[in-house]
C-alpha cells in the first residue's frame, strides 16, 4: 500500500500534500494552525484504521462490534480505540484522499503550469482550494471536516497536539472531574436572578 517505510498508509507525497492543504484550512498565525496541531496525524490515524471494514460482511462487523462492547464492556482505552476505528470508514476515505491529492495536483497545474499543489505559494493553494470549495467537491468537504476534527477534537485521537486547537479558542478543555463553579459567564454574574434564593433540597 505505502511507498515509504514509515508504516503509513499514505505516500510521502500524499501525506505532505494533505498536510499543506489542512494548513490552509486552519492557517498558523500568532496561534497554532493545523500544522502545529498535528492534524495530519489525526487524518492518517483515521485512514489507517479500518482493516476490518473491508474484509468482513456487515453482519460479521456488527457481531465484532458487539464482541468489543459486550462481555467486559467497551471500557478499556484499547477497546474504545478499536470501536472508534470500527465505526470510522477509513478504508473508503483512503481512496477519496488518494483521488483528492491527484485532483489537488491537477488543479494546481492549472494555476501554475508545471507545479503540484505543494509547489504553490499560500495564495495559489488558497486559489485551488477555493475552486474545489465552490464546486462543492465532496473530497474538499471531507478534508475540511477531518481538519476541524483533528484541530478542535480531543487530543486522544492524535490531533490537537498539546491542546493547541483549544488554546486558540481560550477553551480549557473538558472539566470532568472538577466541574465548574459559578459564575459561569458575564451575564449570569451580572443579570439579577429572581430565582437565586431557592432552597435546593425539599425532600426533608
Amino acid at each position: 500500500m505505502s511507498d515509504t517505510d514509515s508504516g503509513s498508509v499514505l505516500s510521502d507525497h500524499e501525506r505532505t500534500t494533505i498536510e499543506a492543504a489542512a494548513a490552509r484550512i486552519v492557517p498558523s498565525d500568532e496561534g497554532a494552525g493545523a500544522r502545529e496541531a498535528g492534524v495530519i496525524d489525526y487524518i492518517e490515524g483515521l485512514l489507517a484504521a479500518d482493516d476490518v471494514d473491508t474484509d468482513i460482511s456487515p453482519r460479521e462487523k456488527k457481531e465484532y462490534a458487539n464482541f468489543i462492547l459486550g462481555g467486559m464492556g467497551g471500557r478499556t482505552e484499547e477497546q474504545q480505540a478499536t470501536l472508534f476505528k470500527l465505526h470510522g470508514t477509513g478504508s473508503r476515505h483512503l481512496q477519496a484522499y488518494r483521488d483528492g491529492v491527484r485532483e489537488l495536483d491537477r488543479a494546481a497545474a492549472e494555476v501554475a503550469s508545471g507545479k503540484d499543489f505543494r509547489g504553490l505559494d499560500d495564495e495559489g493553494q488558497d486559489q485551488v482550494l477555493t475552486v474545489l470549495d465552490e464546486r462543492k467537491d465532496p473530497f474538499f468537504t471531507l478534508l475540511l471536516t477531518h481538519t476541524m476534527e483533528g484541530f478542535y477534537g480531543h487530543p486522544r485521537h492524535g490531533g490537537n497536539k498539546d491542546r493547541a486547537g483549544w488554546e486558540v479558542l481560550g477553551y480549557p478543555g473538558p472539566s470532568f472531574p472538577h466541574g465548574n463553579e459559578k459564575p459561569y459567564g458575564w451575564y449570569d454574574a451580572n443579570e439579577p436572578d429572581e430565582f437565586a434564593e431557592e432552597k435546593k433540597d425539599r425532600s426533608s
Binding site: R75, Q80, R156
Partner: peptide, 21 residues
Amino acid sequence: PWYKREDFALGDELMYKRRNF
C-alpha cells in the same frame, strides 16, 4: 450496549457525538 457511569468520563466530542458510541 450496557454502558456504565464511568464510560461517560472522557469529555470527547469526537467519540461521543461524531462517531457511533
